[in-house]
Design a protein around this nucleic acid. Structure first.
Lengths: 339, 339
DNA sequence: GTCGGCAATGTCAACGATGGACATTGCGCG
DNA sequence: CGCGCAATGTCCATCGTTGACATTGCCGAC
């Protein structure tokens, strides 16, 4: 098995009887080359299976790799994959590629992974911030690599971001539950110390306060320890005295855990509303707050592309809509009228 | 805003008061350099935010980029994300990175995307074959880029592959349904013209034949046209005369579609068994054939790493186990005894 | 006929890191 | 005192491609 050598510009040039530069021209600005020459070069290139070496190109062109990095945390949530998909599509349309890295959800991991990506000379960095400080990216940003935060703003770093209408939609959702007669409304999430959750919680609290309920400590289960199983949190909440008659689940995992626990307890009356949609939500009649994760990725990618190369204007924050989808579980009235 | 220049080896060398060569030594074979010098160099590098230029390194070192490409089709199936996750973890552990690309599930896209990845000079290519011919990769393979097929063997290309025990497990599953008294057992999938499905179908047919049922045309709905909605297929099957008393769904999407349709029809008696597990399968009591997608990715990545650089031995096919998880829906006996 | 001008193509260096082949220090030790 | 070795430096080539600039040759205008 002869391991052939990969063909280079020179090889193609030699075969076509021209100079390397001309071959290079053919592959870039074709208009400067004679039609017959173009043809001859392309034929040679094809015969040799020539492929321009992106490394050399990138080096010569001053570090542009046409590659964008994306750092995401938890692999558990399908939401992130859809975001990645959106990013990938938008980038592909512009001739860029996506490198994905994951952080194992440790803040240490985040910096480490970012470092690995950056030494790849990516043209932009998209990140779902997991740690509580992204200042370690400041240097790189000053060197001209755009950083775009997704789902949450970056902390201690001037980066563009794309986020959701967390507060508003949860506010509205809580209001609807109140209108149904619910008073003991629970909010449950883990981790609770990320921006998206604090926003949602703020919406929840504001609506409760409007209804005169200022103390929600009995029903808000805000856990930060990621090792605590969601099922445990929910079971504790549902089994307590004065259990809530309605629950808002802060994300996908919480919602599914809630379904699991309610089923175990034979609980068919507690109203349930989850943030994030999921595949079988319609089959299970689960009302959710939803949004378009693909669009989230797309917009983030678009922001990155816009930043690339251009002078740096002020930091932008893009807010995408989220909305309520009623499927039954969130429209149940309390069994006993709210006291 | 001063856009600083990125630091190079020379910059670091100048600041540390040593030669570029020494800096290079520090970053590669540290043992040849004095401890204090190492320290001084590292300090300078840190101050200048120096990062060895991977492009230049890769170029110099002959195209090694420490990057592996992964091409996957349909974004709809969460299965692929888990596979990607497995790949990413295994690669990360070995200091490699993952570039992900998607094909929009068109066979044309597959070649185009592969081309884009390959010009990136990836060290290996992992692919879930979507088209019916991967011979276009033959040239690249001969140039030394390992190609590993995931979930399905590559067609017209000598590539390693990692696949599942499709045939055996579906065979066993069908046998169990038969043992419960089912005779009219349906198998439904789309697309049906991919290897993994033909294997599963073969297992199904073999078990049926063992029970003396050689004609399964009335219950096997094998659709190839990807634009046909799964719900339509299933509804047609369930509403026909002599509808099956049990259904095996060929993948995730089919299973969920079946649940949706059965719900609409108020059908609570038809036995259902799905290939691929999903998040809420336990809540919905859905019996499935499952496997470990992360392990699938891991093993594929490991195969790729093993091939990289090494001389090419014979093509390997790795078969990973799949197994049945009983949750209720697949253990229902037929309403009327099989006639 | 000659020269300006332009289209087509070639030459050469440089991008940043690394490796080979040495040369040069300086220190410890026999 | 000089040998040997560790630590470092010099210099140049190299990876594949492209930018800056040079060259060639032909056409048309004067």
């Amino acid at each position: 098995m002869t391991v052939q050598q990969r063909a280079t510009l020179d090889d193609v040039a030699r075969l076509a009887g021209v100079s390397a530069k001309t071959v290079s021209r053919v592959f870039n600005q074709r208009e400067l080359v004679g039609a017959d020459t173009v043809e001859r070069v392309l034929a040679s290139a094809k015969r040799l299976r020539f492929r321009p070496n992106t490394l050399a190109q990138g080096l010569r062109r001053g570090g542009k790799t046409n590659t964008v990095g994306f750092i995401m945390g938890e692999f558990g949530n399908p939401f992130y994959y859809k975001v990645a998909s959106g990013i990938e599509r938008e980038l592909a349309a512009q001739g860029h590629r996506l490198v994905v890295a994951t952080t194992d959800d440790t803040s240490d991991g985040e910096a480490r992974v970012a470092d690995a990506l950056l030494s790849q000379r990516i043209d932009a960095l998209l990140i779902i911030p997991a740690s509580h400080d992204q200042s370690y990216l400041e240097g790189e940003r000053q060197l001209g690599t755009p950083v775009i935060a997704i789902d949450r703003p970056a902390l201690n770093l001037a980066a563009d971001s794309v986020v959701l209408e967390n507060r508003e939609t949860v506010h509205e959702a809580t209001r609807r539950l109140l209108a149904l007669g619910h008073r003991r409304i629970g909010y449950i999430c883990n981790p609770a110390d990320v921006w998206s959750q604090t926003e949602r919680i703020a919406g929840y609290r504001a609506a409760m306060a409007e209804a005169g309920i200022t103390d929600t400590t009995a029903w808000a289960r805000l856990e930060d320890d990621r090792s605590v199983r969601p099922e445990r949190l929910i079971r504790a909440l549902l089994e307590q005295r004065d259990a809530p008659t309605a629950i808002i689940a802060g994300n996908n995992r919480m919602t599914i855990a809630a379904l699991r626990v309610m089923r175990e307890l034979g609980d068919g009356h507690t109203a349930l509303l989850g943030f994030d949609d999921f595949d079988t939500a319609d089959v299970l009649d689960v009302s959710v707050i939803t949004y378009d994760p693909i669009e989230l990725g797309r917009r983030a990618a678009r922001l990155a592309l816009a930043r690339m190369g251009k002078a740096n204007g002020p930091t932008k924050q893009l807010v995408l809509p989220s909305w309520i989808v009623e499927r039954g579980s969130g429209e149940r009235a309390p069994a006993e009228p709210g006291r």
